[in-house]
């Protein structure tokens, strides 16, 4: 039973990872690309690791997978934040179809 649920999580994770990479290619500027790569890849990888935990159970490998989920959830948003902030500070423009940019307005 655990293995079936594990397979479901593995498949879901692979699907989300694939969509995240697809978004990385399709979106127009760095900020939108970060959206797709950070969110989809975080959930996809977490769900692959959760599937691994369901396969392994409470063994050293399974517990390490859970620990990896915790660290992934802590670190992935921070890296997205640092990348987008440094991109904005070094003058990377938003996509031409963007609606507003309050950050640039407040900086000047």
């Amino acid at each position: 039973m655990n293995e079936i649920i594990g397979y479901i999580f593995l498949g879901l994770g692979l699907l989300f990872d694939f969509i995240g990479c697809l978004g990385l290619i399709r979106f127009p500027d760095i900020y939108n690309r970060l959206h797709s790569s950070i969110k989809c890849v975080t959930l996809g990888t977490s769900s692959i690791l959760l599937g691994l935990f369901l396969f392994k159970g409470f063994t050293p490998g399974g517990i390490k997978a859970l620990l990896c989920i915790a660290f992934l959830l802590l670190t992935a948003p921070v890296s997205a934040h640092v990348l987008s902030r440094s991109a904005h500070k070094s003058g990377v423009k938003l996509w031409k179809g963007s609606v507003c940019d309050k950050y640039a307005e407040d900086k000047n």
């Binding site: 979106f27 996509w95 179809g97 963007s98 609606v99 507003c100 940019d101 950050y103």
Partner: peptide, 10 residues
């Protein structure tokens, strides 16, 4: 069609 309207809000 990529239905996005991106922007930075406060």
């Amino acid at each position: 069609d990529l239905p996005i309207r991106p922007g930075i809000v406060k």
